[in-house]
Design a protein around this nucleic acid. Sequence first.
DNA 1: CCTACTGTTCGAGTTACATCGAACGGTCAC
DNA 2: GTGACCGTTCGATGTAACTCGAACAGTAGG
Lengths: 105, 105
Amino acid sequence: MAATTTTRTLHHPDLDDVELTSVLFALSDPTRLELIRLLATEGPQTVAQCQIAEPDVPKSTFSHHLKTLREAGLIRNEPSGRQRTISLRRADLDARFPGLLDSVL
Amino acid sequence: MAATTTTRTLHHPDLDDVELTSVLFALSDPTRLELIRLLATEGPQTVAQCQIAEPDVPKSTFSHHLKTLREAGLIRNEPSGRQRTISLRRADLDARFPGLLDSVL
DNA sequence: CCTACTGTTCGAGTTACATCGAACGGTCAC
DNA sequence: GTGACCGTTCGATGTAACTCGAACAGTAGG
């Protein structure tokens, strides 16, 4: 098949393809902003750990937010055993938009 | 009437009521971001002057963007004779979200 | 294997936002 | 006053995003 259909590895945009407007939009949702702050202070977390901070958000909704953040270039989402590790792309973001992350945290 | 119906003076949110998520959302549109950059570099402008930078945007659409930015607390829109003066609320924003504006400009 | 577990994807319903022409409101010039 | 001018508001339309349950995919353990 030409297209990748497995859900194993998800696509992450290259640093050069990360657009400021997309980043700002991704951060403009309270749930997502809160999650970014969690990752910034606590470091990489599993999805389940992230969800503890947002107990009222169903997992499909939460997964949607993770997708938005990932496609905007804010986080990485990598398989780790049966779970997945969510991490902030801080070095990338600091390189591309210096000071931005610091100012929203 | 109880409600203000005149279009003469428009409502601007108090500094304390300006929310980060609203600011980020307002900045997440390319046209609006461009306008903020114009105001930051060129200083206060009339609406007509702002529109020169975005020649393909109809004036009603442009006015909508101005409303979004104003309600988010990013700009002031004040009458000035027959025209209106659009200005960046830079001091307010720097006080409430230090470094944010600098990082997006 | 087969089951339980973690998290994504699909699909449908709802809501919010963008866009733009037309109508309106206020101001200045004459 | 009245006509031109600058800009907002209204109303209608299309589109994108949010929400969430149900179904699915990959992994580890017994």
